[in-house]
Structures are given as structure tokens and as C-alpha cells.
Computed example of a mutant assay.
Amino acid sequence: MLTRLVTLLLLIGLACAAESRAQPLTRNVLKGACEKLVIAGRDVSPTCGDSIVNLVQGRRTSFDFTSSDGTTVSFSGTGMPQDRQEEVGVDALQPVSAVILSVKSADGGITRDTLMTVGSCRFPPAASGRATVACAADTQRGRFEGTFTTSSDAAPGK
């Protein structure tokens, strides 16, 4: 019985390790201009940073907007239901199922709040040149929006 239990735990551990390696994290930093940032219904566009981060891990994709006070709004959804467009050059529509709000406190600590939502992010197919990412989502704490246009010479970085 003990041998079976040890074998089962070993197999579960191997399966978890294989799963974590099977889903690498891709991180793209996009430089440009933030045109709009709304946090819980409050327009904080003047504080929005000059870059956004696009994270992809497994089926989950997010676009992260950051304000100058250290607050980050992450629009997150799974890529599976993404509405892929048949026409070349037409934006894709990524459903958003959660907004993750990270707020930096005065003592340097970070609090995170995951808000279930209905929303989407619209973005162009991968290409060089200027591109706009626009996200919007409604939560129990209000509306969250972010619009960002990459600079024409911006290239995804890691």
C-alpha cells in the first residue's frame, strides 16, 4: 500500500512538473503612448506609462497597463475563444474574463485584487509599425479601460 502511495505521489509530481514546463511564459514589452487609462470608473490617463506588457502563458493572455503611482491593471483572458479574423490586417478580439488590479502602497507592499468581468481587448495581428491595443471591461468595482498605441519603430522586447 505504501509503495502504491509513493508511486502515485511521484507520478502526480512528475505530471505537475511537465505541465509547468509545457507552458512557457512569453513576455512582450511594447513601447509607445498610452492614450487612455480608466481604473474603476476614474480616468487616470495622465498617469499612464509609456509601455504596456503583453503576457502569454498557455491559453491565458493579458495586457498590462501601469500608472506612474505603481498601479497595474491587467486585462486577462483565455486565447481559446479569441475571435480570429479571416481578413489580413483586421484586428483580433480577445475576450477578457478577469481584471487584475495591483496597487502599490506607501510602504512598498503590493495588494492584488482579481475582479471577474465581461470585456475584451482588440489588437492588430503581429506586425511592425504603429498598432493600437484597446481593452475595456466592466466589473463590480466599475469600468476599466486602457488604450495604447505603439510607436512606429517599436519592436516587441523580452
Rank of each mutant, 00 (worst) to 15 (best):
V90K: 15
S74N: 13
E86Q: 13
G142P: 14
R130W: 11
A18F: 03
E87I: 04
S62R: 08
A92S: 15
T71N: 05
T149G: 06
M80H: 14
L5C: 11
D43N: 04
T71M: 05
I110C: 03
M116S: 14
V29A: 08
G157F: 07
D69E: 04
P81W: 03
R60I: 00
D43T: 01
G119K: 00
T78Q: 04
D153K: 10
T78I: 10
G77T: 08
G146A: 12
R27V: 13
P81I: 06
L25F: 02
S76C: 09
S76M: 08
A15F: 10
D153L: 06
T72D: 10
A126E: 09
E86G: 14
A18W: 00
K158G: 13
G13D: 11
G32W: 01
I52E: 07
P156K: 06
A137L: 09
T117S: 08
T114L: 08
F65K: 05
T26A: 01
A40C: 03
A154L: 08
G79D: 08
A127C: 09
G157E: 15
L9V: 15
A92D: 09
N28H: 02
S74C: 11
F144S: 11
I100Q: 14
G70I: 01
R112P: 12
R112G: 12
K158D: 15
G58N: 05
A131H: 03
C48V: 12
G77W: 03
G79T: 09
G119P: 01
E145H: 07
L11E: 14
R27G: 00
G108Y: 00
K31G: 06
S68V: 02
D113Q: 07
Q94I: 01
T72E: 14
G119S: 08
